[in-house]
Design a protein around this nucleic acid. Structure first.
Length: 919
RNA sequence: GGGCGCGUAGCUCAGCGGGAGAGCACUGCCUUCACACGGCAGGGGUCGCUGGUUCAAUCCCAGCCGCGCCCACCA
């Protein structure tokens, strides 16, 4: 047994214990016969480093996992990192930029190789940081979303979904990020309001019979206008419908059409229609009979002006950036006198969440997942309670999104990621390798397959059935030339795109367990027990896990979905790097220890609310750890050590019987709080037990009287504390566990969670000690208010005290002497003279005081106490004299009111008498 | 335009049908033999406002006032 230092120094023990746990395999002890408990960790980006949100998220998970491990379960916490397509590619591209290089200086293979290299050298920094937080994940099976097995799973999922008709290729408007030059999904678009303008143009009618006024916030798109729409019921334009207008600048002739979309109330009631560059207009365009392939496009991948198919855009505008083009178009229209008006207006503008660049609706071929179909099973699962969302208030949000879900664009024009397992046969003359949109309209046929081998088979089969117009492969596989030298119509090439990162991370709950192989782990740990995630990824990740999990596994991915909030800065603002208001969790760990940070997170995590950072509070929990440390130090120096029993030891002394009962009550409360996922309640329960009950009362009551029984009880209680606190504060508890006694091969991390054995509860002892505490408090308060010097001992006279009081007071003289500074005890009336009168329940206690006490102060004290008692008695009296209350209230409430009334009345009476005695 | 949530002690937050709690901050006393990262005692709240339901409302209902967040195609 090593002596403990006076202050607890977290840094001195954390790394040591973590290394020990990991090395000994204690995060995943062999428990093949135990009930499984499984959590998958939301895989952090491989580029990521631990931020305060991770600290919250992972602390909560670790609390659950450690608790379940202590309960004896086969607790598995799956861990790994996410390849994070866009983020990782950006990191490596930035790195290249430092040496004036760019991605396209390399072949795709070379670049991807560089990313892997980066990943090996610098990726996964966060995994070390999670260790510093104390997270007990199963590192021995760490995964990566692009490791071999996972990639296999992703490919299978794509192929299967394709074969089930749940993935398809479609030409429509996507959210195009011109900064990253890739499509992104709806969820990756963030709308924000900016100050813009509303330009009103006059479009002259072709026949010269007038003009129609249209207004737009995006004037440059008029270069690709294909119609002007008015509402069918709009009488003003009745005669113009069907005529054509001649667009300024391009001179394109476009029809005036009717469509419900046009709002007669807005502007002139006529709206320009640009199907290739606006989501509404796309729909209007389709209704008006335009096919997507015919819709005009006027922007390239960089969002610079691009010549439309009809070649009508003046050369001077070609190649100009969209925002510059906006100015030029307005100027040009103004020059022709067709600019009618410019209004200031707040415009909702879409930005890419990664690039922070304005998103462009752009007409491309992309892969889409039929999310609507996949959403049905998850909706039902939440509806019928198979998946419980905690807190429940998120259900509505979940349903609202799931029930209105849009096709999910899953293809990304990136190099880093899971490459889409689709191959195209393309006619040679259509192939233009120089441009990104080379495949535009050139696809002859698509083959979706898991491997080149599969492609070969499919191609051969296809060749057999329709030899005339098929391909000869030359890129993927030489064997495809089996198809013959067949006039050289086509080449085969693999889809250059990769999948949305969330497409793969959605498989996390089962692909990490070995799927598609039917492994034992998969059978045992799917469905997972619970998922902990921030509400910010409810749609991104949680919902997708449900869709993919239920489709491929036929079962929900987990039974409970716990959503926590955001950790905000102290002023309530969202933390962000750009605002510079982030708090580094590792800095907090350095300063206060991982245990303190973890306890803070747990204590602040009430369901449903964001957490505001409060460093003072972290400090407070550091103090708590020190408090526990010192309590253990006290125990150690008094021969109190590791308990030898799991059950509470037998005890005679009331104080020991009392603390055993208190401990068991704490276990019960903790069990309930943890079962309810009330992290705050759990943390507060153990906090107050340790500090208020164990340290402030129990240890004080036993000081100076520590016999064998007390040693074994105190040792047992401290052990239970260490176990109960371990999920929250793993480091300090493990250290104390080892220091409190020799327990080789029995580390705390795999100890036994205490059993709330109610048989050890003792009501009589509780009554006695509770009364004692109350009495000590009253005496202390009286002494303090009358400024009796702390060291002065006073004799105590109790002429009319009830039996319980006499018993307790005469037994616990040592404790009384220490805690209330009581000298001698006499069961009789006090001598004449000045004294303090203390009223506890129905009795008065007298403490004569040498010299003169401050009579006024004593009167004031008693008067105040009397006032309080009378007020309470009065209000209870009023309630009890209300027949309605006695009649209708619950009997318990009436009983309680009666008892309280009696007590308060007696107390008031005593206080009144005491006051009278003072004259 | 829909949906969700919040407004309780100076601050940060629990409580959510029987008469209000915690941590920090504040005041006074205490170098009491585990701990001053401590101990003891204390001050401080018309529980946003207005109605309603109830024997009883901070807690339930309605409306209002403030403040967040999410979703949504108003050009």
């Amino acid at each position: 047994m090593t002596e403990l230092s006076k202050h607890f120094d977290p840094a001195a023990i954390e790394a040591r214990w973590y290394a020990h746990w990991e090395k000994e395999g204690l995060f995943r002890p062999e428990r093949d016969d135990a009930e499984p408990f499984t959590i998958v960790n939301p895989p952090p980006n491989v580029t990521g480093s631990l931020h305060i949100g991770h600290a919250l998220d992972n602390t909560l998970q670790d609390i659950l996992i450690r608790h379940q491990r202590l309960l004896g379960k086969d607790a598995l916490w799956v861990v790994g990192t996410d390849h994070a397509g866009i983020a990782t590619q950006m990191v490596v591209e930035r790195q290249l930029m430092e040496t004036q290089q760019k991605r396209t200086d390399f072949t795709r293979e070379e670049f991807v190789e560089k990313v892997w290299q980066w990943k090996e050298e610098s990726g996964g920094e966060i995994t070390g940081q999670l260790r510093r937080l104390g997270c007990s994940m199963d590192w021995s099976n760490e995964r990566f979303t692009m490791d071999e097995g996972f990639t296999k799973a992703v490919t299978k999922v794509f192929v299967d979904l394709y074969n089930d008709g749940l993935i398809y290729r479609d030409k429509r408007l996507v959210n195009w990020d011109p900064g990253l030059k890739t499509a992104i999904s709806d969820l990756e678009v963030e709308n924000s309001e900016i100050n813009g303008h509303f330009w009103h143009f006059s479009y002259p009618l072709e026949d010269g019979s007038g003009a129609i006024s249209v207004a737009t916030t995006r004037p440059e798109t008029m270069l690709a206008d294909m119609a002007v729409a008015v509402h069918p019921s709009d009488e003003r334009y009745k005669d113009i419908v069907g005529k054509k207008v001649k667009l300024p600048i391009t001179g394109r002739l476009v029809p005036v059409i009717t469509d419900e979309h046009a709002d007669p109330e807005l502007g002139s009631g006529a709206v320009k229609i640009t199907p290739g560059h606006d989501f509404n207009d796309f729909e209007v365009g389709k209704r008006a009979g335009f096919k997507p392939t015919d819709m005009l496009n006027m922007l390239d991948a960089d969002a610079a002006v691009y010549q439309t198919a009809d070649g009508l855009i003046p050369d001077e505008l070609i190649g100009i950036d969209r925002f510059e083009a906006r100015k030029r178009v307005v100027e040009m229209i103004d020059d022709t006198g067709l600019l009618e008006q410019v209004e200031d207006r707040v415009i909702v503008t879409p930005y890419g969440d990664r690039s922070n660049v304005v998103i462009e609706p752009w007409l491309t071929d992309q892969w889409y997942v039929d999310a609507e179909k996949l959403a049905q099973a998850p909706i039902k699962a939440v509806r019928d309670g198979t998946v419980e969302i905690v807190p429940k208030s998120w259900e509505k949000t979940f349903f609202n999104w799931m029930e209105n879900i849009q096709p999910w664009c899953v293809s990304r024009q990136l190099w880093w990621g899971h490459r889409i397992p689709a191959w195209y046969g393309i006619k040679k003359e259509m192939l233009d390798p120089a441009t990104a949109d080379a495949f535009e309209g050139s696809t002859e046929m698509v083959f979706v397959a898991s491997s080149d081998e599969d492609v070969k088979e499919i191609c051969s089969a296809y060749y057999e059935v329709s030899a005339d117009d098929v391909l000869i492969a030359d890129t993927v596989d030489e064997a495809l030339q089996l198809s013959g030298e067949n006039t050289g119509v086509a080449v085969i090439t693999r889809d250059p795109d990769v999948l949305d990162t969330w497409f793969s991370s959605g498989l996390w709950p089962f692909a990490t367990l070995g799927w598609p192989e039917e492994t034992d782990d998969l059978k045992r740990h799917y469905p997972n027990s619970v998922l902990i995630s921030g509400f910010d990824i409810l749609f991104f990740w949680d919902a997708r896990m449900m869709m993919q999990g239920m489709h491929f596994m036929g079962e929900v991915p987990w039974h409970t979905l716990y959503l926590h909030g955001l950790v905000r800065a102290a002023d309530g603002q969202k933390m962000s790097k750009s605002k510079g208001n982030t708090v580094d969790p590792l800095g907090l760990i350095d300063q206060y220890g991982a245990d303190a940070l973890r306890f803070f997170m747990a204590a602040m995590e009430s369901q449903g609310r964001d957490i505001k950072m409060d460093e003072k509070r972290v400090e407070g929990y550091r103090n708590f750890a020190t408090k526990l440390w010192n309590a253990a130090r006290f125990c150690q120096s008094n021969g109190i050590g590791a308990s030898e029993t799991l059950e509470a030891p037998a005890a005679e002394k009331p104080v020991n019987r009392w603390i055993i009962a208190e401990t068991i009550q704490t276990i019960q409360q903790l069990d309930i709080a943890l079962a309810d996922l009330r992290f705050d309640g759990a943390a507060n329960t153990i906090y107050h037990f340790v500090w208020d009950r164990f340290c402030d009362w129990y240890l004080e009551l036993i000081k100076g009287q520590i016999d064998d029984e007390t040693q074994s009880v105190a040792g047992w209680v401290l052990d239970q504390i260490l176990v109960m606190l371990h999920p929250f504060m793993p480091f300090v508890t493990e250290e104390l566990w080892s220091k409190m006694g020799d327990r080789p091969d029995y580390p705390l991390i795999t100890a036994r969670w205490p059993i709330a054995d109610a048989r050890s509860m003792d009501e009589d002892a509780a009554k006695e000690i509770d009364w004692l505490i109350k009495f000590v408090r009253e005496v202390r308060a009286a002494r303090s208010e009358l400024n009796v010097p702390a060291g002065t001992k006073l004799d105590l006279y109790l002429p009319d005290a009830p039996e319980l009081a006499r018993l307790v007071l005469s037994r616990d003289t040592a404790a009384l002497s220490r805690l209330a500074r009581i000298g001698n005890l006499a069961m009789k009336s006090p001598p004449e003279g000045s004294m303090i009168q203390v009223v506890v329940d129905e009795a008065t206690y007298y403490l004569p005081l040498e010299g003169v006490i401050d009579l006024d102060a004593e009167k004031a004290r008693l008067a105040k106490a009397l006032e309080t008692a009378e007020k309470e008695a009065g209000s209870l009296d009023k309630r009890l004299s209300n027949p309605q209350f006695v009649e209708k209230a619950k009997p318990e409430a009436v009983e309680k009111a009666k008892a309280d009334h009696a007590e308060k009345t007696a107390e008031a009476e005593r206080l009144r008498a005491a006051l009278e005695r003072l004259g």
